[in-house]
Amino acid sequence: MTALQMPADAAEARAVQDALRARVVLDEPGPPPGTGLVTGVDVAYDDERDVVAAAAVVLDAATLEVVAEATAVGRVTFPYVPGLLAFREIPTVLAALESLPGDPGLVVCDGYGRAHPRRFGLASHLGVLTGLPVIGVAKNPFTFTCEPPGPRRGDQSPLLDAGEEVGRAVRTRDGTKPVYVSVGHRTGLDNAVAHTLRLARDFRQPETTRRADALCRRALREATA
């Protein structure tokens, strides 16, 4: 695992992102959908108390049944700056992942990978630090242009930034808003989309995100009660 560098300010944080970006692996397809394990990670904040709670929920990729889960609670040590959210989240996310009893397999972040101004969002950052295959599946658009995908499940359209495809908008359910999929580390974009569709079996969001979101919110409530 690469050592976590915590910057002193936003300028230093951007420099860290630029330095680590060169370590992102983009030429591996990643694990096949429906095989092995897949782990969702998410965080919840109590901004008044500067507390952050992270959750990691491991699912069997074939059945989507929960195999293991872990939480971690920490202090927010970096200010809110768009494009630099990873520095607020990663220390606690790493702690949750390290508390799991085994290899998490593919990791799915509620955030971005290459669909980021410096091509190094949370999913890429987490992948480089852990060496794990990671993808980002975000609920809202961020820093790209995109035509709406078709209305049916599986329809998709490219996310473009300066003419480069940095991800895809993917319709996971008929007639609902799309999610925004991008590669983090050691996984191809087509494979990331295939994983997302398989994980979003019953809801718009992947089951990984839904379960990790619920668990980190519960951990935050318990930590701040």
Rank of each mutant, 00 (worst) to 15 (best):
P206F: 14
A22P: 03
F120A: 02
L106K: 08
L132W: 00
A22F: 06
V43S: 00
G121E: 06
F142D: 00
A8F: 09
N140F: 11
L97D: 01
A61K: 02
D47P: 13
L4N: 07
Y45I: 10
I90F: 15
F142L: 10
R168M: 15
D50E: 15
A68W: 03
D202I: 13
F78Y: 05
E28C: 03
F120D: 01
P29S: 12
R201L: 15
T77V: 14
T196L: 11
A55N: 02
G154F: 13
V57C: 13
E222M: 10
D213T: 11
A54P: 02
P31N: 12
C146E: 12
A200F: 09
L4H: 08
A19Q: 13
L160E: 13
D161G: 08
C109R: 01
G167Y: 11
G154M: 15
Q5S: 11
Q17L: 12
Q17C: 12
L132Q: 00
L97P: 00
F120L: 10
R198F: 15
F203I: 15
L64N: 11
E164P: 08
G127P: 03
D18N: 13
V93P: 03
E147V: 12
T92L: 04
E207W: 12
G136V: 12
S182M: 10
S99G: 15
D213W: 08
